[in-house]
Nucleic acid binder design. Structure first.
Lengths: 335, 335
DNA sequence: TTGAAAGCGGTACCAG
DNA sequence: CTGGTACCGCTTTCAA
């Protein structure tokens, strides 16, 4: 079922069918109607592959994320999609599960599909890939990884600042023995977050920290917390790499009879909706996901009103959000 | 950058380049190497649109869901993706946000992209679309909507049974005044779920029910619960359409000082991971999402070892999962 | 083992 | 306003 079938049935040329399909050129109303009818009757659906090929543009942008299951990534994706649709673009989404090979495969897939722009909101990016993308002349946005170059916009969050705020907050509450719950992605944000935590802690004398890591899921957070606690270490506060793992950790503490924040404080990161709906509500750091999504859209899709891009690097300053999962450190003698 | 460039540089024909790209035909090792090198040097990425067009197959299946933000849908998608990848297929995902027009757009998009199979895990399907898909000869799987036809496999969950189990459970605990938290999707599962709830309740004398609905999100659940409670109605148990909204409802109750399950019981549906991680753990009904994902895969992708499909209709019997959000109804005199 | 060429299903330019 | 036609980039016979 192709243009030719439709053309034949409507007694016109394929060129004309193409015109009515694209509202292009001027087509006599009666002709257009005949064509429309033929399309209807034949249940014709244009082949988008052929379209992209012939037209030289796919009308598509790509978004690659590490873990779509984590609302942090999903929120960004959703904003991008909304913006793209508003501009007449479709968006292709790919999930890497933090696997470097999958990232490579996804990037290749996107390029193969000839996306007109690509956002990589991942932590497992490797230098080789970055170079490859840089050379591709296609607009690219990296979140939290790589360095800005010609066609590349970089969005970074000042994690160090976020973690500092958390550590300051906890220190002010009297906490001196900390635990850090990470996830397995060792590169990028996490590495950065751990490092940032250590640095922030380092500014204070006599603070102790130990870390454990699981997957970037509720279950991963629970496991990491269990591991940390199982080792006999008893921090008075748990800094979690993000909200998802924090909620997992909360559950681990609950099952051990540890009350939050009375016996132990817990912090998240990202400020996803869940952080407000879990119990107790999470003290966390807000990362403006909608803003990030909007920046991605604007960077990837040439706005009609131009604006020469956002500049190569955008730094986001995250802010502390106080809720109920943090409180004064329990007295030293407590269980 | 196309086959011809590569061919020229490797001093072969495009046919040969195509051969090494697809490991097809027999190519002399030395030739293959030259080609590979040219590909490398040129950073050539085959145009998948051209590939699909020429090859007559896209190597792709599509999955359309109502709300990817709800882990219920995401879990299914993830399983499908895993299975598809294992079989050498890519999967395209689309999200409708429960909007019928978006569903139509997504289906058209999928057909336009020439997916080789399509799964619709949505509640807003309309009859017209179903017919259109039925006529398309492409393998299709519907979850919870439409009727099985030639190329269409149908997966249905016995909601009525699931809800019955919940109502029985609550009735057994002494609950007589119930609330139902739905979401805005009026067709399909929700309608079915509400109806099922009413039917189940109808089997018992002297049970009262009132309903409210919000979006299929944490926030939606909270709002619906607030609305219901704000009306002055004081049920002893809240039956929520799914886990997400149940967690939202839990938060609403918490903020009103209503303790679960002491003052009020709450139930979910789906048994997503979160139902185990929220507080208190949700009594819910398990829907086997992995199984559903596997069925979708097997139905859409012709397995090498054949098997003539799963038969047109598959019925899933959900099971009750008891956790901590349900308990005895409070004595009548309680606040 | 390799090359030439005919499509695949559209788009868009050029005539008429 | 409409038709003819040269591509778009790749796959796939068919010959050599």
């Amino acid at each position: 079922m192709n243009l030719e079938h439709v053309a034949r049935r409507a007694r016109v040329s394929t060129a004309t069918v193409s015109r009515v399909l694209n509202n292009a050129g001027v087509v006599r109303v009666s002709t257009r109607q005949r064509v429309m009818q033929a399309i209807e009757e034949l249940r014709y659906h244009p082949n988008l592959h052929a379209r992209s090929l012939a037209g030289g543009r796919s009308g598509t942008i790509g978004v690659i994320v590490s873990n779509l299951e984590n609302p942090f990534f999903f929120d960004i994706y959703k904003t991008v999609e909304r913006g793209a649709h508003a501009r007449g673009y479709e968006v292709l989404i790919a999930n890497t599960d933090y696997r470097a090979e999958q990232l490579v495969a996804s990037v290749r897939l996107m390029i193969g599909r000839r996306v007109e722009g690509l956002a990589a909101v991942v932590s497992e990016m490797d230098p080789e890939l970055i170079r490859e993308l840089a050379e591709s002349r296609m607009p690219v946005v990296f979140y939290d990884v790589g360095a800005p170059r010609g066609n590349i916009v970089n969005i970074r969050v000042n994690y160090a600042r976020g973690i500092e705020r958390i550590v300051d907050h906890l220190f002010g509450l009297g906490h001196r023995r900390l635990g850090f719950i990470g996830h397995h992605a060792t590169l990028g944000p996490l590495g950065e977050r751990v490092r940032a935590a250590m640095d922030a802690v380092g500014r204070y004398p006599s603070i102790e920290v130990r870390a454990a890591a699981g997957g970037d899921t509720l279950e991963g957070g629970r496991q990491a917390a269990q591991e940390l606690l199982g080792s006999g270490y008893r921090p008075t506060a748990l800094i979690c790499v993000n909200d998802i793992t924090a909620v997992g950790a909360l559950q681990a503490l609950r099952s051990q009879g540890i009350q939050v924040p009375r016996d132990m404080s817990v912090t998240g990161f990202d400020n996803i909706a869940l952080s407000e709906f879990c119990y107790p509500g999470l003290t966390t750091v807000d990362i403006p996901r909608q803003r990030i999504g909007r920046i991605i859209c604007e960077s990837l899709i040439p706005a009609a009103e131009s604006e020469a891009g956002n500049g190569p690097e955008i730094l986001i300053e995250p802010e502390l959000v106080l809720r109920d999962s943090t409180g004064p450190a329990p007295p030293a003698g407590a269980p």
